[in-house]
């Protein structure tokens, strides 16, 4: 396995002296399935968003093996890195009134110039979109409107959109937070399958310990903006899990 992304002493703050992410270092390898575990407000979303360049860190470095230093990159480099680093969002972030296929095709925008994207995308792109929809089991909904789909189906459209980017890494920000247990298992199994069969690394943030144990190769625990533990999921101790949520309790009590 080779190092895909290396994060060194990363900090992000939205207001002065209030850090959402503080002094975090870790690295991601090709094709591994990592769960970022922590309670809400621990800084998981901010960390994921900064890895895609949606949030600017205030210090530290994010280095990609393929695109170099991300925070100091040119616009072109950043676009290339984003194309390689697909995102799946908690609220799906799809355009309701467009068809499933058109939403999935948005994942191909990074491959085309502005002018080219005004015309219908090439046949090969549309084929890729259909294969992705087949992969997530929604081929029969390709021309339906997104708003007519259930929450679990919408999230699968989000994953298909990430797939057509042909990324090296998928960042999934609480992809199951608004889904029922059955759809949750379906979504996580899908992500795991994509990781194993396509050798795409997946970093998924969750707050459910059980799901993390069930699916992860490796679990990174976060609390109050810091990494509390980072290890293979089999070796994760009960005490460490408690430590993750204790922060929250202490904050609530004091």
């Amino acid at each position: 396995m080779k190092e895909l992304l290396s994060i060194q002493r990363l900090s992000v703050s939205f207001e002065e002296n209030n850090f959402a992410v503080r002094d975090i270092s870790f690295s991601l390898q090709d094709g591994e399935f990592v769960v970022l575990l922590g309670s809400s407000g621990a800084g998981k979303s901010t960390l994921l968003r900064s890895l895609n360049g949606l949030v600017q860190p205030c210090s530290g470095s994010i280095r990609s093996r393929h695109h170099g230093e991300i925070s100091a990159s040119t616009n072109r480099q950043l676009r290339a890195h984003r194309r390689d680093t697909a995102m799946v969002f908690q609220q799906h972030q799809l355009i309701d009134r467009l068809s499933v296929l058109d939403n999935v095709l948005m994942g191909r925008l990074g491959y085309h110039s502005f002018l080219r994207s005004l015309l219908p995308l090439p046949q090969s792109d549309r084929q890729k979109a259909l294969s992705a929809l087949e992969r997530v089991g929604l081929i029969d909904k390709a021309l339906a409107r997104v708003k007519d789909l259930s929450g679990g189906q919408q999230q699968r459209v989000g994953i298909a959109r990430a797939l057509v980017q042909e990324p090296r890494l998928i960042l999934a920000d609480e992809p199951i937070a608004s889904l029922d247990p059955e759809s949750s298992v379906q979504i996580l199994s899908l992500l795991k399958d994509i990781c194993q069969r396509d050798r795409i690394a997946v970093l998924v943030s969750l707050h459910q310990v059980e799901f993390a144990r069930q699916f992860a190769d490796r679990i990174i625990g976060m609390a109050a903006g810091r990494i509390i533990c980072d290890q293979q999921s089999l070796t994760l101790q009960e005490s460490e899990i408690h430590a993750l949520y204790r922060h929250k309790l202490e904050a609530a009590v004091t």
Binding site: S99, L101, R126, Q127, E134, I139, A142, L143
Partner: peptide
């Protein structure tokens, strides 16, 4: 599956 893909693409193009 190739046929269904083709049918979907045709309808998409028609739209």
């Amino acid at each position: 599956s190739v046929d269904t893909h083709r049918a979907i693409l045709r309808r998409h193009e028609l739209r």
